[in-house]
């Protein structure tokens, strides 16, 4: 091993005063969240580059979903600042679409697929705005983008897990946002759904929007994403996938939980 003190000094140097780029769709500074007396997320910084696809990676219980929810203000934070497009996030919520974990809702709820997608238009419709033809057509178009148009009238409880995830994505598409935050969009979905979702996300990126996913499948990181944030309660590393998604950083993030043999099988970027 080389001189660890030197390595650490450079690491500390990198952490020196991280300015917030004004064009960053999402910049998190010093975010701490705790449930009870153990921090779930401790003093995490992150800077999502514009027009990027970012993965938040870390072991189970590392605080990935919590980071997302706290950034959005859905769970209270103990400290920290969150900026979106250079201003406090609360001021630009209308430019942000959030896709919660599929398992976070009761799919037995009495409603249809199209109604869920229309929920994405809440900000436009307000309390009493009528759902007009063009709203319905937009919702249908969003369903079409995820390949679910013919399921519009279906009761949501009758969908497979992958289909439910596609409906959630369609609802986010209906929001027509500039920043998409997705919590484990690929968890427990079939291969066809995974392809459909990643195609939509890549199209969003091509439209110059930013996408951030909490992600758990290390094998697909290099294929899907260009920016990565590795956390385990604390920020371990952040940067372009090519330079950051390395065996060493993964080992730091996952500790003993990730066998070296496993890392060897990953498609890591060429050093």
């Amino acid at each position: 091993m080389s001189n660890p003190a030197l390595e650490l000094a450079s690491e500390a140097g990198e952490q020196l005063a991280r300015p917030v780029p004004a064009d960053s769709p999402l910049a998190i500074r010093g975010l701490t969240v705790s449930y009870g007396e153990k921090p779930a997320v401790f003093s995490v910084d992150a800077t999502v580059p514009a027009r990027s696809m970012t993965a938040i990676i870390g072991p189970n219980g590392a605080g990935k979903s919590t980071l997302l929810k706290a950034a959005l203000g859905i769970v209270p934070r103990l400290s920290g600042r969150v900026l979106a497009f250079g201003v406090p996030l609360a001021q630009v919520m209308h430019r942000i679409a959030y896709v919660p974990q599929r398992a976070s809702v009761d799919w037995d709820f009495p409603t249809r697929v199209i109604d869920v997608v229309l929920m994405g238009l809440y900000r436009e419709l307000g309390l009493l705005g009528l759902v007009r033809r063009h709203h319905r057509e937009r919702a249908l178009a969003c369903l079409e983008r995820v390949g679910m148009a013919e399921f519009a009238g279906r009761q949501i409880g009758a969908l497979s897990g992958g289909q439910q995830q596609r409906v959630f994505l369609a609802r986010a598409l209906a929001q027509d946002a500039d920043l998409y935050l997705l919590d484990e969009p690929f968890a427990g979905v079939d291969a066809a759904t995974e392809r459909a979702i990643i195609d939509v996300l890549k199209a969003l990126k091509a439209e110059k929007r930013a996408v951030v996913c909490v992600h758990h499948d290390l094998a697909t990181v290099t294929d899907y994403f260009d920016h990565v944030l590795l956390i385990n309660v604390r920020r371990i590393a952040e940067g372009p996938v090519a330079s950051t998604f390395t065996a060493e950083n993964l080992q730091k993030t996952y500790g003993g939980r990730l066998a070296t043999a496993h890392i060897d099988q990953l498609k890591l970027p060429a050093a």
Binding site: P4, A5, L8, V233, K252, G255
Partner: peptide, 23 residues
């Protein structure tokens, strides 16, 4: 912090690495 960072490199078992919560 540095001790922690080094410790997490040397002791890659949960008992040590898993307690790295900043506090």
């Amino acid at each position: 912090e540095r001790r922690w960072a080094l410790a997490r490199r040397l002791y890659q078992d949960e008992a040590v690495a898993g307690r790295y919560d900043g506090l």
